[in-house]
Simulated scan of single mutants.
Amino acid sequence: MEIVARTIGNTAGLWLATRLLSGLSVPEGVGTTQMWLNLAVLGLVLALVNSLVKPVARFLAFPLYIVTFGLFALVVNGAMLLLAGWLTDRIEALGAGGSVPLGLEVSSFGTAVVGSIIVSVISSIIAALLLPRED
């Protein structure tokens, strides 16, 4: 259930980030349904990247976390967003005949860091609303 909640949160966060940041975009010229399907795939890929790759990156960068008092987490989060965008760019298209183009265009690393902050905040809020509390 957690991966579903994270995917929904990432999808909403990615939508907001692409609306607020000019350097973050999804393929243009597609319908609303196709755009949301692209964002859902991006959200799932980002959730998987954060579940599988991010713990390794945290472990390797642990000394930098200590030196920067945790601010290096912003760099790692931006790198995970760039990685998710790169992975979805490698998938040609989704659907019958490749009707839904996938991908996330990130203009710079700074845009990725700011975008990852937006996605993290929105995803955390939605996950808190959807996931049951552990007492």
Rank of each mutant, 00 (worst) to 15 (best):
T111I: 11
M80Y: 02
S99T: 06
Y65C: 09
V76Y: 07
V4D: 01
V113K: 06
L71D: 08
K54F: 06
L102M: 14
A17T: 01
V41P: 02
L87F: 14
A61P: 01
V100S: 05
P101E: 05
N50R: 12
G9P: 04
S51N: 08
W36E: 04
P132T: 06
D135L: 11
S22M: 09
G98F: 11
T33C: 08
E92K: 12
E28D: 12
V106L: 15
I125T: 11
G103N: 09
L71F: 14
V30K: 03
T18K: 01
V114S: 07
L44V: 10
A79R: 04
V49D: 02
R90V: 14
V41L: 12
D89W: 01
G103D: 10
P27S: 03
A93W: 11
L48F: 15
L60N: 05
G9Q: 12
F59N: 07
G115T: 06
V100H: 02
G95P: 09
V113Y: 05
W15M: 14
P27K: 10
P63H: 13
L48R: 10
L14W: 01
Y65A: 07
A79I: 11
P27Y: 06
I122C: 05
L14C: 02
R133F: 10
L52C: 09
V26P: 02
A12Q: 02
G110C: 09
V100C: 04
G78Q: 11
L16T: 05
T88V: 00
T88A: 01
R19H: 14
G95C: 08
A40Y: 00
A112K: 00
V121T: 15
V67S: 07
W86P: 02
L129A: 10
V100R: 00
M80Q: 03
L74F: 15
G70H: 10
A79W: 15
V45H: 00
I118L: 13
A93G: 04
N77I: 05
L37M: 15
I118V: 15
M35K: 13
V119P: 02
E134G: 09
L64R: 08
R6V: 00
G78A: 15
L21N: 04
A93D: 09
I118S: 02
W86N: 06
D135R: 11
P55M: 13
G70F: 14
T18R: 01
L94C: 06
L16P: 00
A127D: 03
G70S: 13
L20S: 04
F109G: 04
S25Y: 01
G13T: 08
V67N: 08
P27A: 10
I3A: 07
V106A: 04
L39D: 03
R58P: 02
L37A: 14
L37Y: 00
G9A: 10
F109N: 03
L82W: 12
V106G: 02
S108I: 06
V53C: 09
V114P: 00
F72T: 12
V26C: 05
A96S: 06
S107P: 02
M35V: 14
T11H: 01
L21R: 02
L82M: 15
S107N: 11
L131K: 08
P55A: 05
G98L: 11
T18E: 02
V119N: 03
N77M: 09
R6K: 11
L52W: 15
